[in-house]
Amino acid sequence: MLVMRRRTGEAVLIGNDIEIHILSIHRSNVKIGIKAPRSIPVCAREVELVRQENLVAALSMYDPPAFMSQLRQVFERDSVQDISDQKTDMKREALNGKDQSKEAPCRQVQSPR
């Protein structure tokens, strides 16, 4: 990695077509301006990481009974509470909210075949 120090107002040139400008620095936050041709995609690194992760997640093909038994093992390992209580509590809180009038938009279905 090429490392250099820049101050506010200074810039870095990459190739003939890309410019990185340091616009402002406030505490630990740097505002960066990027000039690049439209053909070059520019995004925060996390966006690309998440995009890739979503793609892999979308390809997941799971085995229902085996996965459920893994989930149960995780709950058993993590908690001394009764599993069904914990799952019910968390499900109720996470899905329906503490205010019962706000129903989470979930559809009950049969387990996958």
């Binding site: 229902p64 459920m68 899905l95």
Partner: peptide
């Protein structure tokens, strides 16, 4: 999207 929640697979959400 819709969120599917088979009762036997709590707390998994599809």
């Amino acid at each position: 999207f819709i969120m599917l929640v088979p009762p036997t697979m709590t707390p998994l959400v599809f």
